[in-house]
Amino acid sequence: MDKLKILLVDDDEDDRQFFADALEGIELNTELRQLENGKSCMEYLLGNTENTPDLVFLDLNMPIMNGFECLEAIRRTPHLKGLLVAIYSTSSAERDIEETFEKGANIYIKKPSSFSELKKSLKQVVKMNWAYHLNDFKKENFLLKI
């Protein structure tokens, strides 16, 4: 099986580092690309249509283009409609969670406060991704809150 292509969009350098380390720690066959905001995310996705990631982790609170806007832009783009998007944010506000699901997010992960928890969540999501691709879930039916 090919490497699972993961794109992380987060402006916080520490968080990106935690994420990369955790992903490495769970020892699954993944390839991570990191970007700093929604704008660079959209530029990358639209410029690399041949190399679309399998899974995007999107922070919400980012400069230039925030996660909500980026999510909308993704769902507006025809070939990205089926892209699996996981929101990765500190916010645990019910309002935010609902809004992202309404805008087409598939997964919502609250940034955890311990490293082991982060690894656990990532493992779960990556495994989910395989299930998603294997079973060809419709994205509306695939909502996960961690």
Partner: peptide, 21 residues
């Protein structure tokens, strides 16, 4: 309190958890 305070705290917790691990 909800965001700006929690953010650094979460990082402290994160680093501590990594340190412990």
């Amino acid at each position: 309190a909800s965001h700006d305070l929690q953010e650094p705290l979460r990082k402290i917790q994160m680093f501590v958890s990594r340190l412990i691990e």
